[in-house]
Structure formats: structure tokens, C-alpha cells
């Protein structure tokens, strides 16, 4: 294989793996929700249902078909954008989600735009001035944040900004979003909370990645050429730490998925995660499956993207 083709081969291979993973994940999601519970028809009709009514409903829902064929049907439906019908209110799942997806994406997008640059500069800065007061402060802060559950960060934020300072509303839902100021206020709390949660990991991993490359012989060589600390980090260490850093960013941004579930619940934010938590409490399986798939797909794409960056930033493969 010619050297110039090798990275593209790896890219295609990585995409193939992602696709395969997606199939396995959807398999897991489908069977975790479909096969484990007693019987959907019984749940829907309640305990008082007659066996005839249950059997009728099962037939109507196609539950008496073999599991595998239902799985394939479900997958094909997914691919065509048919997410099924909610058990609870008989609405199309697509419609239920469509209204919420934008909200969640906006929350995630704003958070990412805010936290990635901040976290990267803090991580690189901490590595550049390793052992300094700045570095130690960053270390203590990040370790505190990653050590506590997301809801506690959120609770703390509510306590400080909404209760004590009374700057921001504690809830997002139904907040007045007519002016920009009001909208900023509505978003501020969830975004601050989520940013804290995902930045901490990113800072730690970025710092570790840069420090690892700072210990290589070629950085020592740069030192022996008279390079300044700044030059060693920015010119020599950083380009080689790109792969690990991309990985750190993707992994941290994928924490959004977990964080979003908690944050949307706490702030009563009308996003997909809130929808899913509600669906869990009503055991609305089609809705749960669809939400789960949305999260898994976004998680997978982020991780795959990071791997692709790592592959393409490796000079040996160029």
C-alpha cells in the first residue's frame, strides 16, 4: 500500500468500525428495552387487563413476531426517520423529539463553544507553568469538579446565582426569551453548570497530554537550542499532543450527554434529555429508544471524529 493512501485506509476503517459499533449499540438499546420487561401490552393495559385484550394488543403492535425481525423493522424505520409512536399519548415520536432536539443542540453548542477554548487554554497554561501557583489552583479546582456529581455543581450554581445573588432565574422553562438579555439569563445557569462539568476533564487531560510531550527528547533538544518555554510548548509539544488533545475534547464533550440529562432535569430545560427522563418514568419505550439512539449517535460521532483527527494529525501517516 502506498504511504499516501494509508491514512485514508485507516479513516475508512475507523468509519467502518463506527458503523459496526452503531449496529451493536442499537441492538443493545433495542433488546435492553424490548426484551427484558415483562410484557409491553400488559404494562400498557394495566394489571386488570384480560388475557384476550393483552393478546389483541400484542398482535396489533406486532409483538408476537420474532424479536429479530422486529429489530430489523425498527432499524429500517429508524433509517427512514420513522421513530414509531409513543405508547403514552399516541403522538409520533418524531414530532415529540423535533421540538426538543433544537433546544438540546443549542444548549450543547453554546456550552461547547464556551468551554473548549477556555479549557484548552487553561490546560495548556497549566502545563506550560507546571508546578506554579496557577497550575496548582487549576489542579485543585478541576479535581473538585470532577469529584462531585453533576447535580451538585448545578445545585451549587442555583444556590449562588439564583438564591443568594438573585442574578439569574433558577428555572429555564417558561422563562421569558423575548430579549437577548433575558435569553442569556435563561441559558446562563445550564450552560455554566455544563461547562464546569465538561471543562474539568478536558483541562486535566490536555495538561497531561502536553506534559507528556514536554518530557520527550525533542523538546529537550529544543531547550538545548536555546528555545524559550513558550516556544517549547507551542511549537514543539503542542503539534504532537494534538491527537491526545482531540481525544480529550471529544471525550469531554461526550460527557455532555450525561451532563445534559441531569442539567435539563434540574433546570427544567425543555430538551431531549428531559423528554427521555420523563419517558423513563412513564415507561414509554419507543420514545426511550429513540432518545437513547440520538444520544448514542452523537456520542459515537464525537469519538469517531476525535479518532479521525488523531489519525490525520499523525505526521508519520502523512
Amino acid at each position: 500500500m502506498s504511504p499516501s493512501l494509508l491514512p485514508w485506509f485507516l479513516v475508512v476503517q475507523r468509519l467502518g468500525i463506527a458503523l459496526l459499533t452503531l449496529v451493536i449499540v442499537s441492538f443493545a438499546v433495542f433488546f435492553a428495552t424490548e426484551l427484558l420487561p415483562g410484557d409491553v401490552a400488559e404494562i400498557l393495559l394495566g394489571q386488570a387487563a384480560t388475557p384476550e385484550a393483552v393478546a389483541g394488543l400484542r398482535a396489533a403492535m406486532g409483538l408476537d413476531e420474532p424479536a429479530l425481525s422486529r429489530f430489523v423493522g425498527w432499524l429500517v424505520g429508524l433509517a427512514q426517520g420513522d421513530l414509531g409512536t409513543s405508547y403514552v399519548n399516541n403522538m409520533e415520536v418524531v414530532e415529540l423529539i423535533a421540538g426538543r432536539l433544537g433546544n438540546s443542540l443549542r444548549l450543547a453548542g453554546v456550552t461547547t463553544l464556551l468551554s473548549v477554548p477556555v479549557a484548552l487554554s487553561l490546560g495548556i497554561g497549566a502545563a506550560m507553568y507546571r508546578g506554579s501557583l496557577f497550575d496548582r489552583m487549576v489542579s485543585v479546582l478541576t479535581i473538585s469538579v470532577i469529584s462531585v456529581p453533576e447535580f451538585m455543581v448545578a445545585t451549587l450554581a442555583v444556590l449562588i446565582f439564583a438564591v443568594w445573588l438573585d442574578w439569574l432565574p433558577a428555572l429555564s422553562y417558561g422563562a421569558d426569551v423575548s430579549s437577548i438579555g433575558a435569553m442569556l439569563k435563561a441559558y446562563a445557569m445550564p450552560v455554566i453548570t455544563l461547562s464546569c462539568v465538561i471543562s474539568a476533564q478536558m483541562i486535566r487531560m490536555t495538561r497531561a497530554a502536553v506534559i507528556e510531550t514536554l518530557n520527550t527528547p525533542y523538546v529537550e533538544m529544543a531547550l538545548l537550542k536555546g528555545a524559550s518555554r513558550r516556544r517549547m510548548v507551542l511549537i514543539h509539544a503542542l503539534p504532537n499532543a494534538l491527537g491526545p488533545i482531540a481525544n480529550a475534547v471529544a471525550l469531554s464533550v461526550s460527557y455532555l450527554v450525561g451532563g445534559v440529562i441531569i442539567v435539563e432535569t434540574i433546570f427544567n430545560y425543555p430538551g431531549v434529555a428531559k423528554l427521555m427522563v420523563d419517558a423513563v418514568s412513564t415507561r414509554d419505550l419507543p420514545l426511550i429508544q429513540s432518545c437513547a439512539m440520538i444520544f448514542c449517535v452523537s456520542y459515537l460521532s464525537l469519538i469517531t471524529l476525535a479518532d479521525l483527527i488523531a489519525i490525520l494529525s499523525n505526521p508519520r501517516l502523512r
Binding site: I17, L20, T21, L22, I24, V25, A28, V29, A32, T33, L36, P37, S254, V257, G258, I261, I262, M276, V277, A279, V280, R283, L285, I288, A292, F295, C296, Y299, L300, I303
Partner: peptide, 23 residues
């Protein structure tokens, strides 16, 4: 490795939610 990597492709809290919802 492939199988478990794929499993890793499910966010943890989400997996918990789904399983608890199911059983």
C-alpha cells in the same frame, strides 16, 4: 475488544436510565 468497545459507545448514565426503565 470490538464488542466491548462498542459497548463503550453507550453513555453511562444513559445506559443506566434505559436499564432501570426496562427492569
Amino acid at each position: 475488544s470490538r464488542l466491548l468497545d462498542a459497548f463503550n459507545g453507550i453513555p453511562s448514565l444513559l445506559f443506566g436510565l434505559v436499564v432501570v426503565a426496562a427492569v
